[in-house]
Amino acid sequence: MQKIQINDLTRKDFETSQDVRWCPGCGDYSVLKQVQLVLPTLGIPKENFAFISGIGCSSRLPYYMDTYGMHSIHGRAPAIATGLKLSRPELSVWVVTGDGDALAIGGNHFIHTMRRNVDMNIILLNNRIYGLTKGQLSPTTQLGRQTKTSPVGSIDRPVEPISLALSMGVTFAARAVDIDQKNLRDILERAAAHKGTSLVEIYQNCHIFNDGTFEAVSNKKLRDDNRIMLEHGKPLVFGKNRDKGIRLNGMRPEVVSLADGKYTEADLLVHDEQTDCTVMAYFLSRMHNPDFPVPMGVFRAVAEDCYGQSVRSAEAIVEGKRGPGDWDTLIRGADSWVVE
């Protein structure tokens, strides 16, 4: 078979013959399409992509990608991907997961991957519900939400994935909405370019079990007043008429109007995704409707050594000191003796 030139790759090269088996209208279709559009643009040979997933609707995605892939077990994709990346640093490793997979059963691997800053891209499809098991509450289900396992409304306080990631020192964290194609694609491109763990949280509508949970930020008529697009170095302005902003009042952010003349853009917070301090990104991650607009875009993007580099430099230090290992000397041991 002729090796496909990197520059000739198209979306078609990443499609498989498998029938895509998500519910018609599912937000996952949109994510799949954007991923397939982004990969050919990255300058990476097709055979060097590997997609690892766990269990859940989102985790079926690798079956629809014509790359190397493994649909693994519930919650464990980051651990499998870590072993793959550490042993094969030249591969571009992607994890596809969901809110239950990453934050409930797989919470431990999720946090430790980011703590170590293993070079991989984690796509977290957050629909705030268990879809494949038909509608139980998930770790991101909102308080009071009725589900099959919370008939009087959820009493579990939800986890905020980006806050959790920031507390682990994640070096790249971003959020997008499934159907906001342009924004999603830009973010996936940036995540792919980032060295270290990139977390992309995608608000994904499950229209069967949790329809409309992201309506305020996905509906074109509503979204401009309910979301804020993060841009590095730009003041935090939002609203259909770009007449509102976020300023810091003491230690707390607050929404202010730019229309009544009391505040100008100069009073607003300026987004800095590159600061080594995670505090600003953290309070952005705590902003939710209806009190605040929900931030979309890149919360944090900092350059730090990734785990694989650290492992290899530690290995190089040992090898530098001792030279390549000599099997005979090692097996013989330091205090062997000879019998004649």
Partner: peptide, 10 residues
């Protein structure tokens, strides 16, 4: 799981 990932990687 990390070992299995490495096995997948050869």
């Amino acid at each position: 799981c990390s070992a299995l990932g490495a096995a997948f990687g050869g």
